[in-house]
Design a protein around this nucleic acid. Structure first.
Length: 269
DNA sequence: CCTAGACCCTGTACGC
DNA sequence: TGCGTACAGGGTCTAG
């Protein structure tokens, strides 16, 4: 479900509420996730949360000893609930905190994961990630060089986290609309100027979404259950047949790499 | 190495 | 109301 802006919003809230607090223990109610929940997580006792950060769509919660690395998959949510909140079958994990609250992880589709590492930077699945799109490492030079040796379409390229981290289906579609580039073009056909426009568009779209609390479709919500506001600002995603906000032509939908892909044939070339 | 495709799973929306 | 189908924000694994 959540892409970079949504995870970033969750990360900032978690940071605000939980850094410096102590996890008294973790209660695993349902271990049926993409990977089995790491045994170290079962064994957490009185561990202080030192920091909470985001890398790509991963949340990294650093404790006294080791780190929890959370991925929300498609339908994972984190909520702050009280000690007496009743639970449901898709509630997987409770982190019982020392401030009489619980951080509860719920994931109906089970695509999320809770893994453990003593050194997250050395995890294979973290190490292989490309640069953060909102960091200076994600430059026009970098992207142009990477695209020269790829035979992928523009959108599949953007959604591959080894080239750039954290861009999922919504923001690949929206960035390409803003950049005026058709999603099914080969990335190799982008010239320098188009690559520059693409980098700028990605940064603008992600930053704008972060500032508006992310995109809520069905599942995504903040720790307090509130929805993000970026949904209202979507130009193409989910707008099949509706008129383009720029030119009025109807928005088209195709499937690219088994993902819904939206674009305006007039505004994107 | 690269790329395409299948797969994991449940809930919701929609057409008949 | 009930049933079948399509679709959903992601990552991983395999095969070619």
């Amino acid at each position: 479900m959540p892409e970079l802006p949504e995870v970033e919003n969750i990360c900032r809230s978690l940071e605000k509420y939980f850094v410096g607090k102590t996890i008294i223990f973790a209660k695993v109610r349902n271990n049926n996730l993409k990977f089995p929940i790491s045994k170290e997580i079962f064994n957490i006792r009185n561990q202080k949360i030192l920091s909470i950060n985001r890398r790509s769509k991963y949340l990294i919660m650093k404790l006294n000893q080791g780190s929890i690395i959370i991925h929300l998959g498609m339908s994972g949510t984190l909520r702050i609930v009280s000690l007496k909140t009743s639970y449901y079958k898709h509630d997987h994990i409770d982190l019982v905190m020392n401030n009489k609250t619980i951080l509860r992880y719920t994931d109906p589709r089970k695509f999320g994961s809770w893994r453990w590492s003593d050194n997250p930077d050395m995890c294979e699945y973290i190490k292989k990630l490309g640069p953060e799109p909102l960091s200076t490492n994600f430059s026009v030079d970098y992207l142009f060089q990477k695209t020269r040796s790829s035979n992928l379409g523009v959108k599949p390229f953007l959604m591959n986290t080894k080239f750039v981290a954290g861009i999922g289906n919504i923001y690949a579609n929206e960035s390409l609309f803003l950049a005026g580039i058709l999603p099914f073009r080969k990335i190799l056909t982008l010239n320098w100027t188009e690559t520059q426009k693409l980098v700028e568009s990605i940064v603008i779209v992600l930053q704008c979404s972060i500032n508006n609390g992310g995109t809520s479709l069905q599942d995504f919500c903040h720790l307090d259950g509130k929805k993000g506001n970026f949904s209202k600002l979507l130009n193409v995603y989910g707008r099949t047949g509706k008129s383009c906000n720029q030119c009025g032509r109807f928005i088209e939908r195709i499937i690219l790499q088994q993902r819904s892909t939206f674009f305006c044939r007039n505004c994107q070339i």
